[in-house]
Amino acid sequence: MTTVRVAVNGYGVIGKRVADAVLAQPDMELAGIADVATDWRIKTAIGRAPIYAATAETAAGMADAGVEVAGTLHELLHSADIVVDTTPKHVAAGNVAHYREHGVKFILQGGESHKTTGHSFVAQANYASAIGRDSTRVVSCNTTSIVRVLGALRDAGLLLRARGVLIRRATDPWESHEGGIMNTLVPEPVIPSHQGPDAQTVVPDLDLVTIAAKGAHTQTHSHFWTIQLTRQATREEVLDAFRKAPRIAFIRMSDGLVALNSTIELMRDLGRPRGDMWEVALWEDLVTVQGDELFLTYQVFNEAIVVPETIDAIRALTGLAPDAAASMTITDATFGMRKEFLAAGGGTA
């Protein structure tokens, strides 16, 4: 089997998950991890893969902190076929010239703009247009969920237009001690919020508008959608469209999954690594159809949802899999992706 060597630059919230996912793939090798940190975050990677200093200036400090450094990012890129950049927002854009200079393919995350790579990626929607490219950008967690959910309806011939309200988490849980908001809710200052136009970089003909606000919580995002269907439809037709779509899993109020935190606790009880949820968690019992209108709500685990998309993007750029179905089959099997978290009537699915 052909394998590709993957470098991960940035070992934070997304980077550590991408590194884990690469290690689980039968057709990928983790060439190394680059970072600038000297604290517990990078120290948890010791022994898992070679560690490199992302800049020459930080190498000595990392070594002094007890992190054995195999070299700098420059050396790591020489030994890799592709690099996944999961550094903080806007840092990655500054690394692009370095990647191009080394002739290595690269994947950015949703914090960077579409124009940085000229291509934005969600596996089920536009895998084919990413095949063989030098670079792509895996869109943000919320945008990924929008493309998955609206894409399911579009593929079923049911989507006319969509209007959504997003309540975003204030900050990632690990850094909530550094800031965030408390006892308030902060609307984004522009309508449409950026998620709608961002989804259109993947599927240009989507007719959607998003409105967003930041809430005083750190666990996951929630979405509320009013959707105009192309015709009058039944609830079962809509549910069937979601059942056929990849990476959407049903949850139910009737199972006691009544809030964001209850779903997070379920992921832990299911033994998910880090409590991660890679699927969009759609409340099945709240899906409501009235004639040609659809109303629904779902949950997005912002720390993990883009990781399987990143793995598929690696395969697309390097030609490891010929199409989305082939790549997603491997990815979803290695992740243990589900269509339901709990079987109807009780028990795990």
Rank of each mutant, 00 (worst) to 15 (best):
K43G: 09
L77A: 02
G47I: 15
T117S: 06
W225K: 01
G132V: 15
F224T: 08
H221C: 09
R272I: 08
A125T: 02
M182E: 14
D155N: 13
T210G: 02
L160I: 08
N126H: 03
A19Q: 07
V4T: 06
H98T: 09
V104M: 02
A313F: 09
E188T: 09
R100M: 09
F301C: 14
G345Y: 02
I264R: 12
G271L: 04
T334F: 07
P308S: 08
V209P: 00
A125D: 02
V91F: 09
I33D: 08
R154E: 15
Q25R: 15
P187M: 01
R231K: 15
T72E: 09
V83I: 13
D312T: 12
S327N: 02
M28V: 10
F106G: 04
R154W: 07
E57H: 08
L260V: 12
G196F: 01
D205A: 03
S135L: 11
T3V: 12
T116P: 09
V280R: 00
A45D: 09
R274H: 15
M253L: 15
E236Y: 06
R243Y: 05
A343Y: 06
L73S: 15
V280E: 00
A324H: 05
I82Y: 00
R5W: 03
S129Q: 15
E279M: 02
T72S: 11
R148G: 02
G196A: 14
L208G: 00
F121H: 07
E29R: 10
I146W: 12
M253N: 14
L76Y: 07
P308E: 06
T310H: 05
L266V: 01
D285K: 13
I248V: 11
K16I: 01
S140T: 11
I33Q: 10
A349P: 04
P197R: 10
V6T: 02
A259T: 12
I167D: 12
R137W: 09
I248W: 00
A21C: 11
I305S: 04
I146E: 12
G15S: 01
D81Y: 03
L266R: 03
Q195F: 08
F224Y: 10
L166Y: 14
V91N: 06
T87D: 02
M267P: 06
I311C: 11
M277Y: 09
V96Q: 11
E112G: 14
E112V: 14
V280N: 08
L206A: 07
A321R: 15
A80F: 09
I227Y: 04
S113P: 08
D332L: 13
A304L: 06
G336K: 05
A324T: 07
V8R: 04
G71N: 06
A245K: 01
D269V: 03
L76I: 06
L294D: 02
G291C: 05
I42G: 05
L77Q: 01
I131M: 08
G151V: 12
I251W: 03
I305K: 04
A216V: 06
G346E: 00
P88I: 04
G215L: 03
Q232D: 14
P26T: 07
T310G: 03
Y127A: 00
V258R: 14
A343R: 13
S254Y: 05
R231E: 15
W283V: 07
T348S: 10
N126F: 00
E279Y: 01
